[in-house]
Structures are given as C-alpha cells and as structure tokens.
Amino acid sequence: MYISPAIVLTYVSYPPDKSTHNAILFLSDIFGPKLVNSQLIADQFAANGYFVVMPDLFHGDPVPVEREGNFDVMAWLKNHLPPVTDPIIDRTLRYMRQELGCQRIGGVGYCYGGKYVARYLKPGLLDVGYMAHPTHVEVDELKGIQGPLSISAASSDYLFPTEKRRETEDILSELGHPYEITVYSHVEHGYSVRCNMDIKQQRVAKEKSFAQAAGWFDAYLKK
C-alpha cells in the first residue's frame, strides 16, 4: 500500500490490529521502496505487530536493480547525501507522529539506510535503532546516537569490514546505550535483503537477522 506524506511516495504496512502506536521507519537500501524484497520485509515487521512506513528516499531515482556494468554508484550517491535525504526523513517523521498517531518509532536501516538510523537515533526522532550491513556511517554520527542500537553484519563486507565493525563496537561500548552486534558467516554485503534463499547458510542468516531486529524492537520499542 502506498501513501504520500508531504509528497513523498511511501510504502506502508499495517499490523493485524491496525494500530499505529508502535511504528517502524524503514530506511531502505539504494534500490528504494519499490524493491519487492524490501516490501516483503516491511510486511514481516507488520505481521510482528508494527506499523511500517518506508519512504522513497531518492525522489524516484533509485539505483536500477538490473543496472549495466558501467553504472557509477558513487556518482549517483553524490545526489543523495544528507542535505537531500534528511529533509525527506524529517517530513516523514513529522507525518508519522502528527498525522498517523505514531507514539514510539524504531528505525530500520539496510545498507544506505543504516547511516540515517545513526543520524536520527535521538529523542523525539527515532527511539530505537536497527541496522543491517550499514554503509558510510561516520564516526561522529555513531557517537551521536542516543538510544538502543542493534546491528547485523556480514562476515564478508567491503563496505562494513572487520576494522569498521570493531571500531563501531568500541564506540558503542563507550556510549553506554544498549547495543548488540551480530556477525553472520557465509554471507556478503546486502544479504539481509537480497540473498540466495536456496543456499542454506544465506537463508539462515537472513532469517536470523530479521529475528534479531524483531526481538530488539520487542524488547526496547514496545511499551
């Protein structure tokens, strides 16, 4: 289902009881909210009792799923930095709290979206955060979080390598907020959204990553 809060195309999914009190802001990877895999994950969160809102962070300009080999992702990214993306998230959060009646909001960030979970994990914005294989999260953004954060990581990830993962853990341990980092073997960057479900290790990692996120929100978001 799509709505358009403040002219931002948005995929929404309701829990069985239709309540919007416990909500999740779903910040997608570079393929945007029309990616069926992302919609299925949003529906999973809804089935677990959360009202889910997934805005188009890219103004209709996601990275094509079937892109040609010469597609320059870094050039694309220059058009989708925080000065462009933050206002979309700001409008969406205002709409969720003021118009949709969301009382507690957790942030889910996959890949690209993980950066913005860190940026918005603050009182009055996001109450709880979850990231899967995040990308481009700056040290200052991570140090600025003010709430519980859970991270799912791939054992092989050139965008969130071992060194970055360990640095992240060091920072989170100093902040004092609840946190967890789980590393899944036999998977690479992007596995929690796009993996080969026919390969057992990848399927198990994807399923357990979702269970990790759902359990984190059940523990820290629901009241």
Rank of each mutant, 00 (worst) to 15 (best):
R97F: 07
R97D: 05
Q98M: 08
L100D: 13
G101M: 09
G101S: 10
G101A: 09
G101C: 12
C102Y: 05
C102R: 05
Q103C: 11
Q103M: 12
Q103A: 10
Q103L: 12
Q103D: 12
R104N: 08
R104T: 09
R104Y: 07
R104L: 15
I105F: 09
I105M: 09
I105V: 14
G106V: 01
G106A: 06
G107D: 06
V108I: 13
V108W: 05
V108E: 03
G109K: 12
G109T: 08
Y110F: 15
Y110K: 14
Y110D: 07
C111I: 12
C111Q: 09
G113R: 09
G114I: 01
G114C: 03
Y116A: 13
V117Y: 02
V117L: 05
A118K: 10
A118R: 08
A118G: 12
A118S: 14
R119M: 06
Y120C: 02
L121C: 01
L121S: 01
L121N: 00
K122T: 07
K122A: 06
K122F: 13
K122S: 12
P123R: 10
P123T: 07
P123V: 08
G124Y: 12
L126G: 03
L126D: 01
L126E: 03
L126I: 07
D127G: 10
D127Q: 07
D127V: 04
V128L: 09
V128E: 02
V128G: 03
G129N: 11
G129M: 03
G129C: 08
G129Y: 06
Y130W: 12
M131T: 02
M131D: 04
M131Q: 04
M131V: 05
A132P: 10
A132F: 12
A132R: 06
H133L: 14
H133D: 08
H133R: 14
P134K: 03
P134V: 01
P134G: 03
T135H: 09
T135Y: 15
H136R: 11
V137G: 04
V139T: 08
V139C: 05
D140E: 10
D140L: 08
E141Y: 05
E141A: 12
L142K: 09
L142Q: 11
K143P: 14
K143Q: 06
K143D: 09
K143N: 07
K143R: 13
K143Y: 15
G144Q: 03
G144P: 03
I145H: 00
I145C: 04
I145Y: 02
I145P: 01
I145W: 01
Q146A: 11
Q146R: 08
G147R: 00
G147P: 02
G147Y: 00
G147D: 00
G147K: 00
P148H: 09
P148R: 03
P148S: 10
L149Y: 01
L149S: 00
S150L: 06
S150P: 11
I151W: 00
I151H: 00
S152E: 15
S152V: 15
A153P: 07
A153T: 13
A153L: 15
A153V: 13
A153E: 12
A154P: 15
A154W: 02
A154K: 10
S155E: 14
S156G: 10
S156A: 13
S156Q: 14
S156F: 15
D157E: 10
Y158D: 03
Y158K: 06
L159N: 04
F160D: 00
F160Y: 08
F160M: 01
F160H: 01
F160I: 02
P161A: 06
T162H: 14
T162M: 11
T162D: 15
E163F: 03
